[in-house]
Design a protein around this nucleic acid. Structure first.
Length: 202
DNA sequence: CCATTGATCGCCT
DNA sequence: GGCGATCAATGGG
Protein backbone atom coordinates (compact mmCIF):
# COMPACT_ATOMS: atom_id res chain seq x y z
CA UNK A 1 0.00 0.00 0.00
CA UNK A 2 1.24 3.45 -0.92
CA UNK A 3 2.07 5.86 1.88
CA UNK A 4 1.17 9.54 1.69
CA UNK A 5 3.95 12.13 1.31
CA UNK A 6 3.98 14.34 4.42
CA UNK A 7 5.15 17.63 2.84
CA UNK A 8 1.63 19.05 3.10
CA UNK A 9 2.10 19.28 6.89
CA UNK A 10 5.14 21.54 6.60
CA UNK A 11 3.57 24.97 6.20
CA UNK A 12 -0.06 26.10 6.61
CA UNK A 13 -1.95 24.26 9.37
CA UNK A 14 -5.46 25.16 8.17
CA UNK A 15 -4.73 23.86 4.66
CA UNK A 16 -3.16 20.72 6.12
CA UNK A 17 -6.27 20.11 8.24
CA UNK A 18 -8.57 20.22 5.21
CA UNK A 19 -6.20 18.10 3.14
CA UNK A 20 -6.26 15.38 5.82
CA UNK A 21 -10.01 14.74 5.38
CA UNK A 22 -10.49 11.40 3.62
CA UNK A 23 -6.92 10.19 4.20
CA UNK A 24 -6.69 6.73 5.75
CA UNK A 25 -4.97 6.28 9.13
CA UNK A 26 -3.68 2.75 9.71
CA UNK A 27 -2.10 1.44 12.91
CA UNK A 28 -0.20 -1.79 13.64
CA UNK A 29 -0.47 -2.27 17.39
CA UNK A 30 -0.45 -5.48 19.44
CA UNK A 31 -0.18 -7.43 16.19
CA UNK A 32 -3.47 -6.03 14.89
CA UNK A 33 -4.09 -3.87 11.82
CA UNK A 34 -6.81 -1.25 12.27
CA UNK A 35 -7.68 1.88 10.35
CA UNK A 36 -10.20 4.41 9.08
CA UNK A 37 -10.77 7.38 6.76
CA UNK A 38 -10.54 10.78 8.45
CA UNK A 39 -13.95 12.48 8.68
CA UNK A 40 -13.41 15.27 11.23
CA UNK A 41 -10.42 17.42 12.25
CA UNK A 42 -9.68 20.63 14.14
CA UNK A 43 -6.72 23.00 13.67
CA UNK A 44 -4.87 24.54 16.64
CA UNK A 45 -2.68 27.52 15.80
CA UNK A 46 -0.22 27.68 18.68
CA UNK A 47 0.71 31.17 19.80
CA UNK A 48 -2.21 32.95 18.05
CA UNK A 49 -4.98 30.68 19.34
CA UNK A 50 -6.30 30.86 22.90
CA UNK A 51 -7.81 27.38 22.60
CA UNK A 52 -4.45 25.74 21.84
CA UNK A 53 -2.41 23.95 24.52
CA UNK A 54 0.60 25.92 23.31
CA UNK A 55 -0.99 29.39 23.49
CA UNK A 56 1.33 30.57 26.27
CA UNK A 57 4.38 29.47 24.28
CA UNK A 58 5.62 27.64 27.36
CA UNK A 59 6.97 24.10 26.92
CA UNK A 60 5.53 21.74 29.53
CA UNK A 61 5.71 18.02 30.15
CA UNK A 62 2.25 17.74 28.61
CA UNK A 63 2.67 19.73 25.39
CA UNK A 64 6.37 19.37 24.55
CA UNK A 65 5.81 17.16 21.49
CA UNK A 66 3.86 20.03 19.87
CA UNK A 67 7.19 21.82 19.52
CA UNK A 68 8.64 19.00 17.39
CA UNK A 69 8.67 19.44 13.59
CA UNK A 70 5.88 18.06 11.39
CA UNK A 71 5.77 14.29 10.89
CA UNK A 72 5.35 13.53 14.59
CA UNK A 73 2.16 12.98 16.54
CA UNK A 74 1.16 14.62 19.83
CA UNK A 75 -0.96 12.48 22.15
CA UNK A 76 -2.36 13.89 25.40
CA UNK A 77 -4.63 12.56 28.10
CA UNK A 78 -7.68 14.31 29.44
CA UNK A 79 -10.71 13.09 31.39
CA UNK A 80 -9.17 9.64 31.19
CA UNK A 81 -9.00 9.58 27.36
CA UNK A 82 -6.15 9.90 24.84
CA UNK A 83 -6.44 12.38 21.96
CA UNK A 84 -4.19 12.45 18.89
CA UNK A 85 -2.84 15.39 16.87
CA UNK A 86 -0.62 15.54 13.80
CA UNK A 87 2.05 18.18 14.44
CA UNK A 88 2.48 20.71 11.60
CA UNK A 89 5.22 23.19 10.54
CA UNK A 90 8.90 23.15 11.50
CA UNK A 91 9.07 26.28 13.65
CA UNK A 92 5.67 26.77 15.29
CA UNK A 93 3.76 24.72 17.92
CA UNK A 94 0.74 24.02 15.68
CA UNK A 95 -1.17 20.88 14.89
CA UNK A 96 -4.33 19.13 13.75
CA UNK A 97 -6.54 17.19 16.18
CA UNK A 98 -8.07 14.06 14.66
CA UNK A 99 -11.67 13.99 15.93
CA UNK A 100 -13.40 11.38 13.75
CA UNK A 101 -12.70 8.53 11.32
CA UNK A 102 -14.84 6.11 9.32
CA UNK A 103 -13.76 2.52 10.15
CA UNK A 104 -12.07 0.74 7.22
CA UNK A 105 -9.85 -2.07 8.56
CA UNK A 106 -9.83 -4.33 11.59
CA UNK A 107 -13.37 -3.44 12.57
CA UNK A 108 -13.76 -6.51 14.80
CA UNK A 109 -10.58 -5.58 16.66
CA UNK A 110 -11.86 -2.04 17.17
CA UNK A 111 -15.19 -3.36 18.45
CA UNK A 112 -13.32 -5.49 20.96
CA UNK A 113 -11.11 -2.59 22.11
CA UNK A 114 -14.14 -0.31 22.49
CA UNK A 115 -16.41 -2.92 24.07
CA UNK A 116 -19.29 -2.00 21.74
CA UNK A 117 -20.25 -2.20 18.08
CA UNK A 118 -21.67 1.27 17.44
CA UNK A 119 -20.07 4.73 17.66
CA UNK A 120 -16.61 3.14 17.37
CA UNK A 121 -14.67 6.18 16.13
CA UNK A 122 -16.88 9.31 16.13
CA UNK A 123 -14.91 11.29 18.71
CA UNK A 124 -11.25 12.03 19.55
CA UNK A 125 -11.09 9.77 22.62
CA UNK A 126 -13.02 7.00 20.91
CA UNK A 127 -10.88 6.68 17.79
CA UNK A 128 -7.61 6.52 19.74
CA UNK A 129 -8.99 3.67 21.83
CA UNK A 130 -10.25 1.86 18.72
CA UNK A 131 -6.86 2.25 17.01
CA UNK A 132 -4.91 1.22 20.14
CA UNK A 133 -3.20 4.62 20.61
CA UNK A 134 -2.11 5.54 24.17
CA UNK A 135 -0.26 8.59 25.40
CA UNK A 136 2.35 6.75 27.45
CA UNK A 137 3.33 4.54 24.50
CA UNK A 138 2.79 6.69 21.42
CA UNK A 139 3.26 10.40 22.24
CA UNK A 140 5.91 11.77 19.85
CA UNK A 141 5.69 8.83 17.43
CA UNK A 142 6.81 9.41 13.83
CA UNK A 143 4.16 9.08 11.11
CA UNK A 144 4.76 6.41 8.44
CA UNK A 145 6.97 4.30 10.69
CA UNK A 146 6.22 0.78 11.89
CA UNK A 147 3.25 1.72 14.06
CA UNK A 148 1.15 4.42 12.34
CA UNK A 149 0.80 5.27 8.63
CA UNK A 150 -1.25 7.62 6.46
CA UNK A 151 -2.47 6.50 3.04
CA UNK A 152 -4.30 8.38 0.26
CA UNK A 153 -7.77 7.01 1.09
CA UNK A 154 -10.85 8.79 -0.25
CA UNK A 155 -11.86 12.26 -1.45
CA UNK A 156 -14.59 14.28 0.30
CA UNK A 157 -17.41 15.62 -1.87
CA UNK A 158 -18.06 18.70 0.32
CA UNK A 159 -16.07 20.05 3.29
CA UNK A 160 -18.00 21.95 5.99
CA UNK A 161 -16.31 24.51 8.28
CA UNK A 162 -17.67 24.94 11.84
CA UNK A 163 -16.58 26.26 15.25
CA UNK A 164 -14.56 23.84 17.38
CA UNK A 165 -16.05 21.69 20.12
CA UNK A 166 -15.44 21.79 23.88
CA UNK A 167 -13.64 25.16 24.09
CA UNK A 168 -16.53 27.36 25.28
CA UNK A 169 -14.33 29.14 27.82
CA UNK A 170 -11.70 30.34 25.33
CA UNK A 171 -13.07 33.84 24.58
CA UNK A 172 -12.74 35.01 20.96
CA UNK A 173 -11.27 31.65 19.89
CA UNK A 174 -14.69 30.01 20.29
CA UNK A 175 -15.82 31.57 17.01
CA UNK A 176 -12.92 30.54 14.77
CA UNK A 177 -14.04 28.15 12.00
CA UNK A 178 -11.17 25.75 12.56
CA UNK A 179 -13.22 22.51 12.59
CA UNK A 180 -13.55 20.72 9.26
CA UNK A 181 -15.79 17.74 8.53
CA UNK A 182 -16.82 15.63 5.55
CA UNK A 183 -20.32 17.00 5.02
CA UNK A 184 -23.02 14.39 5.65
CA UNK A 185 -20.68 11.68 6.98
CA UNK A 186 -22.11 10.12 10.17
CA UNK A 187 -18.74 9.30 11.79
CA UNK A 188 -18.31 12.75 13.36
CA UNK A 189 -18.99 14.15 16.85
CA UNK A 190 -22.65 14.78 17.70
CA UNK A 191 -23.89 13.68 14.27
CA UNK A 192 -27.60 14.29 13.72
CA UNK A 193 -29.91 13.55 10.84
CA UNK A 194 -29.43 11.20 7.90
CA UNK A 195 -26.10 10.34 6.23
CA UNK A 196 -25.78 11.52 2.62
CA UNK A 197 -25.15 9.18 -0.32
CA UNK A 198 -21.78 7.35 -0.07
CA UNK A 199 -21.26 9.01 3.34
CA UNK A 200 -20.12 12.19 1.58
CA UNK A 201 -17.24 10.69 -0.45
CA UNK A 202 -16.79 11.33 -4.16
C1' DC B 1 0.36 17.02 49.71
C1' DC B 2 -4.10 18.51 48.02
C1' DA B 3 -7.28 21.01 44.87
C1' DT B 4 -8.44 22.35 40.37
C1' DT B 5 -8.74 21.91 35.53
C1' DG B 6 -9.77 20.25 30.96
C1' DA B 7 -9.32 19.97 22.83
C1' DT B 8 -14.26 13.77 26.65
C1' DC B 9 -17.53 9.83 27.03
C1' DG B 10 -21.65 7.51 28.01
C1' DC B 11 -25.72 7.02 30.48
C1' DC B 12 -29.58 9.36 32.43
C1' DT B 13 -34.02 12.15 32.11
C1' DG C 1 -29.59 18.57 27.34
C1' DG C 2 -27.53 17.44 31.93
C1' DC C 3 -24.13 15.28 34.86
C1' DG C 4 -20.87 12.10 36.98
C1' DA C 5 -16.68 9.26 36.06
C1' DT C 6 -11.96 9.51 35.46
C1' DC C 7 -6.79 10.87 35.26
C1' DA C 8 -2.57 13.26 34.30
C1' DA C 9 -0.65 17.66 34.65
C1' DT C 10 -0.40 21.88 36.97
C1' DG C 11 -0.14 25.26 40.66
C1' DG C 12 -0.50 26.66 45.35
C1' DG C 13 0.60 25.70 50.46
Amino acid sequence: MKLLELDFLSDDTLSAAKYLLGKEIVTYIDGEETGGYITEVEAYLGLEDKAAHTFSGKVTKKNDMMFEPYGHIYVYTMHGHSCMNFVTTVDRPEGVLIRGIEPSRGIEVMEKRRGRTDHLTDGPGKLTKALGIQRNLHNGLKINGDTLCIMPGKTPDTIAETPRIGIDNKEEAVDYLYRFIVSGNPHVSKFKGKPVADNGWK
